[in-house]
């Protein structure tokens, strides 16, 4: 395809997605609203903002993670990143106790958790991806094992924790797509905005990174610095999304691959926005339909995980892992 056709096709696709996302957002805000508009709008507005932040965080972190790892099947959550976040939370409440944890300014707390998360994920990543020959199936296996390990450790600690602390912890961890906590959404928005500034500054390097380590280096990119920076951004985004809605394993895989599918050429200027828009469309549109049409409240995560999981299996079977 010629560059002009590529650009046009991508832009048209993005516009369609944008319109659909907008429609779903408007539907989310207004459909079936009863009573005082100012209450409905502020209540639903918080939830909409949370959904959009989560959609953005998951899709961007997945696409960038896949760019630096050079594969389209591993995602930060499949590699156990969000299970790690849950473990960190649990350890924190376990060691400090719920009272002390709740006494800390939630914003400070969030920052500390994110920092710990960044540190751990850097270590993990360096350890896993530093070798030259990477066996993708081995990595998937390692990721799943790590995820199980983190989850079981969290489960173990949650069992021996004192019951009062557990209630607090549960409150923090088992959030659904039904977020109403304005402060948390605010902190998340600020963090995500900060991350986005760095992403914007680095935007010209993503396509080069996608060529793989060797080509990126021979084209003069400081590969180590660039991947480390991106990994930090990914860890922050995962922390934000996990703090808001808990672990979501396969959703990122689904939206990233749909984006690669509908955008003809791999250019991040198109694939990144496409992944974000698809992600917003799935979460906001899905939530609207489930709530308003079927009056279900919590089923969205199950459906999304189911679809994503199917996709993952399909992918493994088709062997499209390069």
């Amino acid at each position: 395809m010629s560059p002009d056709v590529l650009r046009k096709t991508s832009l048209v696709t993005l516009s369609i997605l944008a319109v659909l996302s907008l429609v779903s957002a408007v539907a989310f805000m207004t459909w079936g609203a009863r009573g005082s508009w100012s209450f409905v709008l502020s209540f639903r507005g918080t939830r909409l903002a949370a959904l959009i932040i989560v959609a953005y965080a998951i899709s961007v972190s997945t696409v960038l993670f896949q760019t630096i790892t050079g594969n389209r099947i591993l995602t930060p959550s499949i590699m156990g990143f969000d299970a790690l976040y849950v473990l960190l939370q649990t350890v924190l409440v376990f060691t400090l106790g719920a009272a002390a944890t709740s006494a800390i300014d939630p914003r400070l707390m969030f920052i500390v958790e994110v920092a710990a998360m960044v540190g751990f994920s850097l270590l993990l990543f360096r350890f896993l991806f530093s070798g030259h020959a990477q066996n993708i199936h081995l990595l998937v296996l390692v990721g799943i094992v790590l995820g199980v390990l983190f989850r079981s450790l969290s489960g173990f600690l949650q069992r021996i924790i004192n019951p009062d602390d557990f209630v607090v912890l549960q409150d923090r961890l088992f959030a659904s797509f039904n977020i109403t906590d304005g402060t948390l959404v605010g902190v998340s928005a600020v963090l995500v905005a900060g991350v986005s500034v760095f992403i914007w500054r680095m935007r010209d390097t993503f396509d080069v990174l996608a060529l793989g380590r060797d080509m990126a280096i021979s084209l003069g990119l400081d590969y180590q610095a660039a991947t480390t920076r991106i990994l930090i951004l990914v860890a922050i985004l995962i922390s934000v999304s996990t703090a808001l809605v808990g672990p979501v394993t396969f959703f990122g895989l689904l939206v990233a691959n749909l984006a690669y599918l509908i955008i003809p050429a791999s250019r991040h200027r198109y694939t990144l926005p496409a992944a974000v828009l698809i992600s917003v469309l799935c979460l906001v549109g899905g939530q609207t339909i489930l709530e308003r049409l079927f009056a279900f409240d919590t089923a969205l995560s199950i459906i999304i995980e189911f679809a994503g999981g199917l996709f993952f299996i399909l992918f493994l079977l088709k062997g499209r892992n390069r």
Partner: peptide
């Protein structure tokens, strides 16, 4: 610095696999 060397020396390796989907022009433009 990698950047300086990239304007002096280039390399093509023996095996080149790409995950990215690119046209010939895209690749050469890199």
């Amino acid at each position: 610095s990698g950047d300086v060397l990239a304007r002096r020396l280039s390399i093509l390796r023996q095996d080149n696999h790409l995950t990215a989907r690119l046209t010939v022009t895209d690749l050469v433009t890199f």
